[in-house]
Design a protein around this nucleic acid. Structure first.
Lengths: 201, 201
DNA sequence: AAATGGTTTAACCATATAGTTAAACTAATT
DNA sequence: AATTAGTTTAACTATATGGTTAAACCATTT
C-alpha cells in the first residue's frame, strides 16, 4: 500500500470519529505511523485532506438516492426498493449520517460545494403518486412529506444512535442490533400501510 | 440583568451555534461585552460553563417526552398529543436537535451524565397498543419501532435542516417554512393511517 | 560511484487558546 | 474617610496546534 493510501485510511478513521475540529493532524500522523510533516507533503493542509475524506463520504451516499425511478412500476415498488437499498448502505456505513450531519451543521456551505446540482427527483415521485392515486391504489399524499417521513425513519436511528439506544433500549446493545435488522421490513410495512387504500377483508 | 446572566446568554448563543469545540471563550466574552478573565471568575472553566448551557438544553427537551400517559384514553390520542406537543416545542427551539445531537455524538457520555435515569415509557405504550389491538381499533405493531418512527419524523427535519432544505426544497426558505407548519398534521395523519384498522367505506 | 529526484524526518515557527495573576475599581460598611 | 468584600481588567503563562524548513534518506539512472 502506498503512503498516500495509508494516510487516507488513517484520516478516514480519525475524521469520521472526531470530525474536522475534533481531529488533530498529529493524531492522524500517529494513526498512519508517520511524521506529521509528511501529511502536509501529501495533502497541503488539514482542510484539503478533510475535503478528500468528506467528498468520499458524500459520494457513497448518492447512488442509493438516485435510485432508478424508470425501472419501477408503482409507488409501492419504489418505496420498498428505496428503503431496502438505503438501509443496506447504512448498515455497511453506519457512521455516515453522523459524520455528514455533524460537518454540514458546522458549515452548511459543504452541501452545495459537494452535492452540487443533485436533488431528490420530487417531481417524478409526485407523478408516481398521482398515477397510483388515480388508479385508486393509494391515498393522495404530499410527495415532500412522504419522502421526508421515509428518509427520517431510515436515517435518524443512525444519526442519533447513542440517544435512541439509551432512551428506548436502556443501552441493550443486542436489542438495538436486532431492532436495526428488523428496520427495513418495519419501515416498509409502516409506510405502505399508511398510503395504501385497503380493500375490504 | 446580572453579569452572570449576561454571560449565560452570550454562552447560549455561541455554544448553540458552534458547539463546544467550535466556540472560543474570547468570542463568548466579546458577545457578553466583558473580559475573558471574567468568564473564568464566574464559571471556572470552559467545560463547566458549557455543561450549564447543555443541561438547560436537555432539560427543555424532557417535559414533552414525559407526556402524561395517564390522561389519555387511546393510543391515537396519545400519538396526536405527543406529535403536537413535541413539534410545538421544536418550533420554539429549532436549534435544539442539532445542538444535542452534535454534542452527544462528540461525547456519548453526556447522555447518561444528564438524562440520568429517564427513559421513554415503552412498557406503558406497549400496554396501550395491546389494549387497542384487542379492541380491534389498531393493527399490532412493535412499540419500539412505532416510537422511533414517530420521533424520527418529528426531529429529523430539524436535525438535518440544511440538507433537507437543499435536497428536497431547492433552498426555497418559504417552502420549507410552510412544510414545517404542515408537519404536525401530516405526521399525525401518516401515523394514524398506518396503525388504524380502516372500517369499510 | 556520482548525480538526480522523490520521500521522510527532526527541529522549528507563528499563532491561537484556555487558564492565571495581580492590580485596579466600585459600592457598601464602619 | 478608611476598610472591606466583591467585581473587573490588563497583562501574562503554558501549551497545543497547523504549518514550514532544511537536511537526511533511498532508490533509480547515468
Amino acid at each position: 500500500m502506498t503512503t498516500e493510501e495509508i494516510i487516507l485510511q488513517a484520516a478516514r478513521k480519525v475524521f469520521r470519529e472526531k470530525g474536522l475540529e475534533g481531529s488533530r493532524m498529529q493524531e492522524i500522523a500517529d494513526e498512519a505511523g508517520i511524521n506529521k510533516a509528511l501529511l502536509h507533503y501529501y495533502f497541503r493542509s488539514k482542510d484539503k485532506l478533510f475535503m478528500k475524506i468528506f467528498s468520499e463520504a458524500i459520494q457513497s451516499m448518492l447512488p442509493s438516492v438516485r435510485i432508478s425511478l424508470q425501472e419501477v412500476e408503482t409507488l409501492n415498488q419504489f418505496l420498498s426498493f428505496f428503503v431496502h437499498e438505503y438501509l443496506k448502505l447504512l448498515n455497511e456505513l453506519p457512521w455516515l449520517p453522523r459524520f455528514i450531519l455533524q460537518e454540514v451543521n458546522r458549515n452548511p456551505k459543504l452541501i452545495k460545494d459537494i452535492m452540487g446540482n443533485r436533488e431528490l427527483p420530487i417531481n417524478e415521485i409526485d407523478r408516481l403518486i398521482r398515477r397510483d392515486t388515480e388508479k385508486g391504489l393509494i391515498m393522495p399524499i404530499s410527495a415532500e412529506h412522504l419522502m421526508v417521513n421515509v428518509i427520517s425513519m431510515i436515517i435518524f436511528p443512525f444519526a442519533a444512535r447513542p440517544v435512541i439506544q439509551t432512551l428506548i433500549f436502556k443501552d441493550d446493545e443486542h436489542a438495538y442490533k436486532q431492532f436495526l435488522i428488523d428496520r427495513s421490513e418495519q419501515i416498509t410495512q409502516f409506510v405502505l400501510r399508511s398510503i395504501s387504500i385497503q380493500s375490504k377483508p
